[in-house]
Amino acid sequence: MQQFWTHPALSYLQSTYFQHSPNMYPADYGRHYNSLPVPTESGVVHVTVDGYRSNYTAERRKECNAFLRTARKFCDQPGSRYQQAGEWTRTCQSRVVSCFAGQGMPEEISLICCLAVESKYKTIAELPQWAWVNFGMDCVGFVSTYLIALGQFKKMLKYIPKYKVVADVATSIDDIYYDNAILWANVDGGNAKVRPNPGNKSHIAIIECWEQYGSSFYVAQSAGSKKGVDYDRVYEIVQEPKSTKRDRAYWKIRQKGTYTTSKVVITKSVPLFAAGD
């Protein structure tokens, strides 16, 4: 079965603008959303889609449906060089929807923007604002698509508590490495329960790298409080787990320069994962 990110309609974009690799850090991936290249017949346009977007709102659903109607009609024209892209909008329609719901890969969003211009659904002048309003990332969209681009995930993993099951938990400093997921949790009676999404003040981030002496690290994430994709926040470890038991091992961390402490579960490095949703 072909995976959605290997669809041939995305191949040119991936080889030209989005050369993902197993050595890619979260910040490398996040920068794509800061200045997303969109190839058009008139040249390459760059749009910013790094804002926080979550849920498939009524407004974005309406926009997605209108885009699909126009783009498919355009791609289906006899002799069109975009027929493969039109086929992508049908066989991977759920991925088109995901882009409008804050969970799209950069090459997918780039293709949608390209089709919007070439089909004359939007002009080049209108494209930046249209893209900013409709595209962006929520927290789990950023982490899951990054791990797909890295080659670790074979499908999206959208339910935050499941990351703990897939990757197991870090119980000491020795377990911390880049690409560990950070899961915000509630603690009751010493037991740490990862906050389920959507809502519930749930959040997931991923460790970019250690900063110094094993006591702080850079975190990459997409958060409403950070107004979107962010990969240079330093978090300090306030307290390591007092227990090595899987359901009682939680950490206290805080963003450097602040006094607000969060209780989180930190996973070990996320392994190859082939299951879905």
Rank of each mutant, 00 (worst) to 15 (best):
Q152G: 00
I176F: 15
Y163H: 04
A27R: 03
E63C: 03
T16F: 09
L157S: 05
R95N: 13
G43Y: 13
S269Q: 09
W210G: 04
M1G: 12
E107C: 00
G224M: 08
K256E: 15
L115H: 03
T91V: 15
V117L: 03
Q103K: 07
Y235Q: 04
S98Y: 13
A149G: 07
V270I: 15
P198C: 02
I112L: 14
R72Q: 15
S15F: 12
Y250H: 09
H203P: 06
A275K: 10
S144I: 00
G30L: 06
V97S: 06
T261P: 00
P37H: 13
I204L: 01
R69N: 09
C209E: 07
T16V: 09
K164L: 05
T40I: 06
P37R: 07
L150K: 11
S216C: 14
N200Q: 05
C114S: 14
N134A: 01
Q212F: 07
H46D: 09
Q212E: 15
T267N: 07
P271G: 01
E87M: 05
E240F: 13
P241T: 05
V229R: 02
L68V: 08
G104L: 06
V44N: 08
K73W: 07
E41L: 03
P196S: 12
E59N: 11
K268N: 10
P198W: 12
G257C: 06
A274T: 10
A71L: 03
G224E: 14
H20R: 11
A125S: 11
D247N: 15
G43Q: 07
Y56P: 01
W210D: 14
V49R: 05
G51K: 05
V44H: 09
T89N: 03
E41G: 00
S15V: 08
L36H: 05
P106H: 11
L183A: 02
A66T: 10
Q255R: 14
